[in-house]
């Protein structure tokens, strides 16, 4: 029973992932293929002076997306979890339904919304918040906004799931012992859903690092992320080894936070047993 899926995933997932690192050590072939022999030249191209800025921007945008998603998802998850059973169902459904539509279409919808002649621009003009030549699209702000839009459900769902299991009497206990509402929220609620917060960080930060479509369609040349460079090297330049080297870098960038969070959680687990152990 194991064999078919195991072999399939080894061939089409594990092997290709390792290939990223192998091909980064291959020379390019002028026809767009992979050259013969081994070389370190491809890795040297990573010292391209544009790259540090792009890597920094990728990290910055991903971190900002993660922070904003958590900031919005935590109060929302809390609110949904505290609502009556009926409202909980309705709100949760309302939160998920927009994300049943195609990802590309959602990105496109924002392009329409932020278009120089689109509704948001007109509204801002009417309110005197924008000048006729201010541009809402093709900048980091637009990329960040739509990244938050895209990845919010990945933060809301784990946070809601944990909040729903949270014993809200603990907040009453904190109030009873003299804590103000906000203090109780920070010192009792957030530690109570700590695991879910870490899950949300991973669920948002990792795909955010690999963003490609959003900066491609809504960003300009000054808001490119590492994903754009990978695609450019692969399609525009037909330099697969170079794309591969960049991908290897991204893979390491993706693995690092995962290992870090796993390490944090394991350290916590080794301390006093989890709450489930209680009678």
């Amino acid at each position: 029973m194991t064999a078919p899926s195991f072999v399939w995933l080894t061939v089409f997932f594990a092997l290709p992932t390792l290939l990223i690192f192998a091909i980064a050590l291959k020379p390019a072939d002028p026809l767009g293929g992979i050259g013969e022999g081994w070389t370190l030249d491809t890795l040297r191209t990573l010292s391209n002076p544009n790259y540090p800025a792009i890597v920094a921007r990728t990290l910055r945008l991903s971190a900002a997306t993660t922070a904003l998603c958590l900031l919005l998802a935590t109060p929302a998850g809390y609110h949904i979890a505290r609502a009556s059973a009926r409202w909980r169902q309705i709100l949760l459904l309302l939160m998920i339904v927009p994300f049943w539509t195609s990802f590309l279409i959602r990105v496109f919808a924002w392009k329409v919304l932020l278009h120089p002649e689109g509704p948001v621009k007109r509204l801002l003009l009417a309110l005197g918040l924008a000048s006729p030549d201010s541009l809402l699209l093709y900048n980091e702000g637009a990329v960040l906004l739509v990244m938050v839009y895209t990845y919010l459900p990945f933060a809301i769902l784990p946070i809601y799931a944990a909040a729903e299991k949270f014993d809200f009497r603990l907040l009453e206990a904190a109030r009873d012992l003299g804590a103000r509402g906000f203090y109780a929220f920070i010192h009792v609620f957030l530690p109570g859903i700590r695991r879910a917060l870490w899950t949300a960080v991973l669920m948002v930060f990792i795909p955010a690092l690999g963003s490609y479509v959003i900066p491609d369609l809504l960003g300009g040349p000054t808001s490119e992320m590492i994903g754009n460079k990978i695609a450019q090297r692969a399609f525009a330049d037909r330099n697969l080894p170079h794309a591969s080297a960049l991908s290897a870098l991204l893979t390491l960038g993706v693995l690092a936070p995962m290992i870090w969070v796993l390490f944090l959680q394991r350290r916590r687990d080794r301390r006093p047993a989890a709450a489930e152990a209680a009678p």
Binding site: D167, R169, L170, E172, A173, A174, D176, V188, G192, A275
Partner: peptide
């Protein structure tokens, strides 16, 4: 208050 399930902070 002493809560019914004690509501100790886990």
């Amino acid at each position: 208050t002493i809560f019914q399930n004690y509501a100790l902070f886990p």
